[in-house]
């Protein structure tokens, strides 16, 4: 197709790439149309009515209907583009319910990936083809931005709270990862690869590495950091019971109620006094500055995995793609 000779767009390697390029082509045609229109008007008028051929200018005041016309038409086109793009935006910004989780930590000038099955990768992300992959991203220092041109996805990675992105790769292969928010000296070196594999090859890759899953790693941290002494789960324990808490609605001591998503769990570990569960004292010590982002991700994965007895289907499914 055209793009083979003149590279008009990167490879379409995700479900959403086609829609994005369609909108792009529509806008390119719109731009060409209006630019040619203006250019033709300007060139034609300035040649046809040049001084030597048309020495006496006709003074025209203007015409209100024409003004209304060339306000309404651009407004109409603009609204079409707005709605079309807004639908695409909502589709891209909210991950589907059943999607594979990957945790990404951005650090000055590298990407660290953590799979729920325990694998840890640097600047590489192995994912199976035709699967919804939801990225939960956080930064350890400055603002980065995770961008895969071939999947047409990008989202800033903020220090201080989780941000999300998702994709569904349709073609096996290796695709670029770029950091697109300026982050310092080796901003242009903070690149990597997404390796999309056939299901069989992916299973082979999965089995290649030993070591416990992320949730098991989280459980070990949960014990070693002393969390289990308060959050023992027995009635009358000093800390709230974490069984099945993830995704549920938690009442806070100041009367508000908050949905317990990843950001709530992370904030409660780092700044416990920010949102104290109703009925509990502000006695949890802060762990700010003592736990790395990776350990935090393991603890979050562990809390997510405590789905409680049958409250939710087991396994890695996470309730609702929370933004």
């Amino acid at each position: 197709m055209l793009s083979k000779y003149i590279p008009l767009w990167p490879e379409q390697a995700s479900t959403v790439a086609g829609h994005m390029d369609l909108l792009y082509v529509f806008l390119v045609l719109n731009t060409i149309f209006f630019t040619v229109l203006v250019a033709v008007m300007v060139v034609a008028f300035s040649i046809k009515f040049r001084k030597s051929k048309h020495p006496v200018a006709v003074q025209i005041e203007g015409s209100v209907p024409l003004e209304i016309f060339w306000s309404a038409v651009p407004l109409g086109i603009a609204m079409v583009i707005f709605v079309w793009a807004a639908v695409l935006y909502f589709h891209l910004m909210r991950a589907p319910r059943e999607s594979m989780e990957v945790y990404i930590t951005g650090k000055q000038w590298m990407w660290k990936m953590q799979h729920p099955t325990g694998q840890r990768e640097i600047n590489q992300l192995h994912v199976p083809v035709n699967t919804n992959v939801r990225l939960t991203m956080i930064s350890q220092d400055v603002i980065h931005s995770f961008f895969v041109p071939e999947f047409r996805i990008k989202h800033d990675v903020l220090p201080g709270r989780y941000t999300y992105a998702w994709f569904n790769a349709t073609k096996p292969g290796t695709y670029h990862i770029f950091c697109t928010e300026y982050c310092g000296t080796k901003h242009s070196g903070m690149i990597g690869e997404v390796i999309v594999m056939e299901p069989a090859a992916y299973q082979l890759w999965l089995s290649g590495s030993t070591g416990g899953s992320l949730a098991q790693e989280g459980e070990r941290q949960f014990a070693s950091l002393g969390c289990v002494t308060c959050h023992s789960g027995q009635p009358g324990a000093r800390g709230p019971n974490l069984e099945g808490v993830f995704g549920s609605n938690v009442k806070i001591s100041d009367g508000r109620s908050v949905t317990a998503d990843e950001n709530y769990v992370r904030e409660s570990i780092l700044n416990p006094q920010a949102k104290i569960v109703a009925g509990y004292g502000p006695i949890m010590p802060t762990f700010a500055g003592q736990i790395s982002e990776e350990t935090l991700i393991q603890l979050v994965a562990f809390v997510k995995s405590k789905q409680g007895t049958g409250a939710k289907a087991g396994g890695q499914a996470t309730p609702g793609g929370k933004q």
Partner: peptide, 22 residues
């Protein structure tokens, strides 16, 4: 509060600034 909070076996010690109310 001080008496009640158990001394968790936390490796590094949070500075007073980090222990301040968020």
């Amino acid at each position: 509060g001080e008496a009640a909070a158990p001394e968790p076996g936390v490796p590094g010690e949070a500075t007073e600034r980090q222990r301040s109310m968020p």
